[in-house]
Amino acid sequence: MQVDPAYFVPPANAEVADVGVTLPTTLGVWQTPALEWLPAERMYERIDGRASFYEQFGARGLLYAGWSSPAGAWDLYLYLMNDATGARGAFLAEANGANQHFSIKPNICGTPGTLFFLHGAAYGQLIATKPAAPPASVTGLVARIIALLPAAVEELDPSTYLRHPAVAPATLEYAEADAFGYQSLARIYSAQAVLQEESATWFIATLSNHAAAADVVRRYTAELRTFGATDIFTNDYAVGGQMLGAWEVLARTNTMIYGIRDAGSHTALTQHWHALHMHLQRGPTQ
């Protein structure tokens, strides 16, 4: 049956069938009065000027539902993308693990009152009506939603994240351990890139979880200091400095670490870092 999504207020346990996602209006103790499907061209009706952000990641639409249970009320914003790449891009951009206060699983993180999750081509946000709502109270709902989403595609080889016009494909390398002489850097993919005639090395690795990524940055920072780096700069999610006349930086975003090294100047480092960061927000390239 064709359902006009604009007027779609399903009865209990009805489905949103035309978007490839099946969600009932009751999930365990959780209930929603209605599921609202907004195709890409109508997402603005709920998120207004933010809609274009998701469109750039290939959003097909937004499934919205206000869920409630004795444990509290949470609003679901489930963005369904054309592919897993787009979903990951939006997840990395918005649910930047380094900015979040906790990580439950590799693809579930958040702050008190908000939970982000990624599964295949779906990227979801759950936002509590009350800011102090503990995330543990909603993880059951997340698990039930994920179980109903299409199976996640297999994770891509991290090296695919380095496919960029500035990167020379022939220079792609892999280091199982001790990459660039750092004990903290393992399973690293790297490649040479040139931007505005300034060359540098881009590198990347994916970790099993948020805490592991944070630990890499912590250990890398210690090694950077031990090796005598100068002009060290650091913030919540990145650390860098100058070593033997070359600049380098390591950053993390949720379960991924990425960085630049061998940059000839701080300006070149910044240019390369910005380019890689923006590239990663768009996800890997097949």
Partner: peptide
Amino acid sequence: VRNGPTGGSAAD
């Protein structure tokens, strides 16, 4: 400071 105009996380 990030992810406006909607935001969605206290981290923003």
